[in-house]
Amino acid sequence: MDLNLFWYLMIGVLLTGYAILDGFDLGVGTLHLFTRTDEERRLSMNSIGPVWDGNEVWLVTAGGALFAAFPHAYATAFSGFYLAFMLLLCALIFRAVALEFRSKRPSKGWRQSWDVAFFASSTLSALLFGVAVGNMIQGIPIGADKEYAGGFWNLLTPYPLLVGVFNVSMFAMHGSIYLYLKTEGELQERVRQWFYKAFAIFVVLYVVVSCVTVWRLPSATVNFREFPWLTGVVVLNVLAVANIPRAIYLGLPGRALVTSSLTIAALVLLFGVALFPNLIVSSMGPEYNLTAYNAASSQRTLWIMRNIAFIGLPFVLTYTVAIYWIFRGKVKLTPTSY
């Protein structure tokens, strides 16, 4: 495997980790306002309390890895999606602060404002990630100078918005399973109802997005014609989706969470396959695409970073597993809770 391909896959792995892990805590945020009492809201926030910060680090590291491995893709995407990224930053800041500070004062107005901020910022983040993915598949205007030639509103065309809404529904579904796993009693029963609703919306949008992608964006399916075995991923993906409600019905939320994680992983993989070897598709002509080869750092840097990744990733996985293990079980409000 050449180093460029390694880093293409590596960024895929980091984004998959991010989508699975931050996916459920963004989803919990989207569902946050459906809770009824103050105690339920604290339970909802504390279910992700010890882990959300670590989950966000996957995004930070994916961003750092993109900067290091494919500086042109990083520079073009981040400067091109300028206002979108600013909105995202704003949302992520508010989200962090809402979690941290919501329960610090008893006043009702204080808590309600932060509850709304937590909901809005989580949902906006999920939407923007989806919009970004939609634009990546659809292509954006990039010329020979590798610079984005459009404006903010060019990013908000129907297809990316559709993918954005789809992503919100997927994270809400994923988040409801996580909440189901972490809660008990009457709240858990209601979370189950939310799950079925979120799942229904997710399935409808899943079908719509798939159909639109196949019909309207032929470039996205080129790699599937070249490597027909990849359609196996699609089949497995559909089976995984079908297994989610089955696991919930059987009362196995852990298994449901694993399956919805696999669903997300499969979707990120399909997204990667649709793009490869491009990182950013130019709508002004395929010769302007930024690929894993023409946007990359030097071989030496890719090699150094691969060594850094090999040394560091075992530690990262160990911490991640250890934290989830230490904080396993139903969420309880304790003196150190939010």
Partner: peptide, 20 residues
């Protein structure tokens, strides 16, 4: 990017995950 990026990536892998 070629120079600076690897330091940033190392920061993410070695420091941020450890801290968080």
């Amino acid at each position: 990017g070629d120079v600076f990026g690897s330091a940033l990536a190392a920061e993410g892998v070695f420091a941020f995950f450890l801290e968080s």
